[in-house]
Amino acid sequence: MSSPSPLSTRERILDAAQKLVRRGEGIVSMAAIAKAAGLSRQALYLTFADRADLYVALVRRVDEARGIPEEFAKVRNAPDAVAAIRALVDMQARLLPLVKPIADVFELLRRQDPDAERAWQDRLDSRRDQCRYIVERLVEEKRLRPDLSPGIAADLAWSLTSFRMWDELVVQCGWTAERYGTYVSALIENAIVAPRSRPAPSRQRRPKPGAKP
């Protein structure tokens, strides 16, 4: 049997960084990452420009491992905007339990480390882009609530699909993934989607007095 191919320098660095970050011991220095990866600091900086660059790559790697790019594709390939909303909420319901360990660490780390904050904002921006796309489709389909601007509607959808909201409802309140998906989808739809107009009921002409029925 052939032996497994050795990890690339990039993968060695990301493996080491992920293990150190998961320990939750606060700010992780580039020197500590280099040592854990068995590399010199020079080799580390030849691969990543700085710690922020490394953190962004790490968060994206975690998302890719969980299939998030493919899930975003499902949102964009949904048949209509309402189906796209449901696909986004369904994605959060299924994948956030898998992302939670690293998300919890970054929630703490970003408060003390600007580089971690930049990486986490990069991740949040990806979901915000999906929400903007959904709102663009609502506009095209003439289904956006008329009292909302596209920017406000996207902000609402982005906030209602946040990790924090999922964590409070599922982890803190004990909701099932099914309940989360059902109620959060309905909440977003009620918040930003205009109800379909119903045709006015036809008026039946009243018979003239004395006319035969």
Rank of each mutant, 00 (worst) to 15 (best):
A157E: 00
A87K: 08
L58K: 02
A153F: 00
S202W: 09
T47I: 01
R10A: 02
I68T: 09
A103D: 11
Y133W: 10
I68V: 15
D63E: 14
G24F: 06
T47W: 00
Q121N: 08
A37Q: 06
L169R: 13
P79N: 14
P207M: 13
A73C: 05
T47H: 09
L138N: 09
V82G: 12
A81W: 00
L169Q: 10
Q112Y: 08
V62E: 04
M1A: 15
A78N: 12
T9W: 03
S3G: 08
R10L: 01
L98Y: 09
P79E: 12
S2E: 13
R123C: 07
P114T: 02
S185P: 00
K208N: 11
Q42A: 10
P6L: 06
Y133G: 02
K142H: 11
P207G: 09
V139Y: 06
M1Q: 12
V139L: 13
A78Q: 02
R118C: 05
Q92M: 12
Q172P: 00
F163P: 00
L39A: 07
A191D: 00
L7S: 15
D155M: 14
E11T: 14
R179N: 10
T47M: 08
Q121P: 04
S202A: 15
L39Y: 05
R41L: 09
R128Y: 07
D155T: 11
A211K: 15
R164C: 03
R198P: 10
R111G: 04
E25H: 14
L148S: 03
A194N: 07
T182C: 06
S29N: 11
I192Y: 05
W175V: 04
S197K: 03
T161M: 02
D147G: 11
D122Q: 06
V82D: 13
V139S: 06
T176L: 11
D155A: 15
R76N: 02
E107F: 05
A16T: 03
N77L: 12
A211N: 15
A157P: 00
S185C: 08
I102T: 07
I33W: 07
S2M: 15
D115S: 09
T182E: 15
S185M: 08
Y183L: 14
G67I: 04
A116Y: 05
R137A: 08
D147F: 05
D80L: 04
A157Y: 03
R66N: 13
L138H: 07
M1E: 13
R128I: 07
L96E: 04
A84K: 04
F72G: 04
I27W: 09
L124Y: 05
P146D: 06
M30P: 15
A191Y: 01
R128E: 03
E141Q: 15
A157R: 06
